[in-house]
Structure formats: structure tokens, C-alpha cells
């Protein structure tokens, strides 16, 4: 990343759901981040932290109601998507920004052939003939590592495995050279062996098309394999943001540290399913202090009294926590040491 050029910039995005009259679930609550051209940014957090709502908001695919974008802007090359009409937004979807989803089993239309589903997106955006679109579809299938595109193009989704379908999804997503690819947990539903193939494929596609990727995941292992930069999300907010190395070697937020601990250990090669004790607070009644305080082993009085802001600890490393800024704090040193050791 020699020169950093901001491609997509989200500022102060707030997305609420009206779950009962005048009871708002603040699914996304003041999220700001950006994506540079050609960069892979991972958005991590436990389920329910607001990752999918964030990504669907970028695509403007959120169902409104019950959802409501309360404030913020989503700028793609300086153009605010939130101000676009539905018609203008359709030109962006599938063309400038493409998306792949978690469930390869259900994300394709069951009653249309794979070929049709790739071609229709190409024809719609590039206005080319059916024959040319078919050529392109075959090319794309080959590119995503499908050995017999001529056959697959005539098949229906149920005839393919989960991994194959996700490859098809990637082919559809890349069909119009998108500037941004949003992948919402693209490997979560797949076998472990297939997972890393799909991740590698996404990175290869990124190289081929020079796209940026916003990769949503709850798996720190996936982050380590793919990301340039990491956004850690908790209860509708970004709680830490840093380069990938910095996150793994020098995590600052107790939540980030906890997430790292849930990673399966590489030494004994077992996939342990670890989770952080406690629950994400319900998004309609966040505490007035830090939203992680109740689950945080280092919580101090101030944490429960007032909510910390996202602040910079070093160049490009931001954290929403009081602890790193507590001068000479014991908690900092002790915890820092133990984490670096265990990593």
C-alpha cells in the first residue's frame, strides 16, 4: 500500500431498529471507518455486534422499516450513497460494490441455472449481448477455480457443493470488476478445508481486479490470514482499529484481547470453540458507561460511569478504552505482558 487512497468512507453511521413503539435497538451506533483502494479490512466482532447491519447499510439493502439509518454518510469516491435514489443505487450495487453472503446454500436462486445467474448481472450492468455475457461467465467460472465451467454453467445450485456455490457467488460478485467487495462471513458456513481455499480465492480476485475488500468475520484466524487492517466492533461501535500486526502483537482493548484468546491454538492443532464469558448487552438498553464494562476483567469505576471515546494510541491505532490512557496504570503493564507472552 504505497499510496493510500480512500475509496469508501463511512462517517458516524447510526442504524436503529424500532423494536417497539419508541424503543430503539441501536444496532449500529456511530461507526466511522474507511477503506483504501486495494486494501482488505476485516470487521470483527461477536455475533450481534452490528457487522451485518453495517454491511447491508453500505449496500442500502437493509429493510426499512424496521431499520432506519438515523445519521451518517457513506461515501464512495466522494459520493454519498445515502443520498442516492434507489434507481441510482442500483447502478452502484453489483457494479461498484458487490457483496457475498454467509449462506452459500441459500444465497443463489434455486430455480435458475448458474449461468443465468452470472450472466444477468453482467448483461444488466454492461449492456452486452447474451453471447458475450456467456463467454464472460465461463471466464469468471474458470477464474474462481471451477474446473468444468461449460458443465457448471448449465447446472442448478442444488447440484453444487457449498464451496462450489461460494465460488459461484464470488464469480457473480466479481463479474463487473467491483471497486469494493463486501464479504459477510463468507466462510463461516463452510468446511475448514474449504474455508481457506475460499479466502485465498478472494485475495487472488482482489489482486486480479484491484478491489478493496471489507471482510466481515468473527474468526480471528480468518483475520490473520487475510486482513491488512482490522476493525473490532462491539455493541454497535468500533472499539479498536489498527493494522493487522498491531492488533495481534499489541492489542489494547480488553475485548480485542478476549477475542484473540478465543482463537483456536495452533500448537496442538485443535479447533476449540471458545467464547467470551457473558453476553453482548441488548442493543435497546446499552449501559451509560463502557458497553463492555460488565464483561471486562479490568473494569474500573470510570468505565461504568462514562463511555470512553475512540482515541488514538499511536499512528493508525485507535481504541475505545480508558485503560491504555491511564498513566502508570498497573493493569496496563501486567495485562500487556501476559498477552504478548501467550501470543
Amino acid at each position: 500500500m504505497e499510496q493510500k487512497e480512500k475509496l469508501l468512507e463511512i462517517k458516524d453511521l447510526r442504524v436503529y431498529f424500532e423494536i417497539a413503539p419508541s424503543r430503539m435497538a441501536k444496532a449500529v451506533d456511530g461507526v466511522s471507518f474507511h477503506l483504501n483502494r486495494g486494501e482488505t479490512v476485516a470487521l470483527v466482532g461477536e455475533s450481534g455486534s452490528g457487522k451485518s447491519v453495517t454491511s447491508l447499510s453500505i449496500m442500502k439493502l437493509l429493510s426499512i422499516p424496521p431499520g432506519k439509518i438515523v445519521s451518517g454518510s457513506i461515501e464512495l469516491e466522494g459520493k454519498d450513497l445515502l443520498r442516492l435514489s434507489e434507481k441510482e443505487m442500483r447502478k452502484v450495487r453489483g457494479d461498484d460494490i458487490a457483496m457475498i453472503f454467509q449462506e452459500p446454500m441459500t444465497s443463489l436462486d434455486p430455480v435458475f441455472k448458474i449461468g443465468d445467474q452470472i450472466m444477468e448481472s453482467i448483461i444488466h450492468h454492461q449492456r452486452i449481448s447474451k453471447k458475450e455475457a456467456k463467454e464472460r461467465a465461463l471466464e469468471l467460472l474458470k477464474l474462481v477455480g471451477i474446473a468444468n465451467p461449460e458443465k457448471v454453467i448449465k447446472e442448478y445450485p442444488h447440484q453444487l457443493s457449498g464451496g462450489m456455490r461460494q465460488r459461484v457467488m464470488i464469480a457473480i460478485a466479481m463479474s463487473n470488476n467491483p471497486k469494493v467487495l463486501i464479504a459477510d462471513e463468507p466462510t463461516t458456513a463452510l468446511d475448514v478445508t474449504v474455508q481457506s481455499q475460499i479466502l485465498k480465492l478472494m485475495l487472488k480476485m482482489q489482486d486480479t481486479f484491484n478491489s478493496s475488500i471489507l471482510l466481515i468475520t468473527h474468526d480471528m484466524g480468518v483475520v490473520a490470514e487475510t486482513a491488512d487492517r482490522v476493525l473490532v466492533m462491539y455493541a454497535g461501535q468500533i472499539v479498536e482499529e489498527a493494522e493487522v500486526k498491531e492488533v495481534f502483537l499489541n492489542p489494547q482493548h480488553p475485548y480485542t484481547k478476549a477475542l484473540l484468546k478465543t482463537m483456536p491454538s495452533l500448537e496442538n492443532n485443535v479447533r476449540r470453540l471458545l467464547s467470551i464469558p457473558g453476553n453482548v448487552p441488548p442493543s435497546h438498553q446499552f449501559p451509560k458507561g463502557c458497553r463492555f464494562a460488565d464483561r471486562c476483567e479490568f473494569a474500573m469505576d470510570i468505565c461504568r460511569d462514562s463511555a470512553p471515546e475512540l482515541e488514538s494510541v499511536s499512528e493508525g491505532h485507535h481504541v475505545r478504552c480508558y485503560i491504555p490512557f491511564k498513566k502508570g496504570g498497573e493493569a496496563v503493564d501486567k495485562e500487556q505482558r501476559s498477552v504478548t507472552k501467550s501470543f
Binding site: L61, R90, R93, D95, F101, S107, S121, M169, I172
Partner: peptide
């Protein structure tokens, strides 16, 4: 259903989504 979201994400017009898919 999920597949409709996928088709929307391709930017297809609503009429096509309803009457075709």
C-alpha cells in the same frame, strides 16, 4: 429469502426481481 437479497445486491431492478425470480 436469502437469494432475493443476493439478486438485490446485483443491482437488478425490482420488476425483474419480482416477475422473473
Amino acid at each position: 429469502l436469502d437469494y432475493v437479497r443476493t439478486i438485490r445486491s446485483k443491482g437488478l431492478p425490482e420488476k425483474l426481481i419480482v416477475y422473473k425470480h
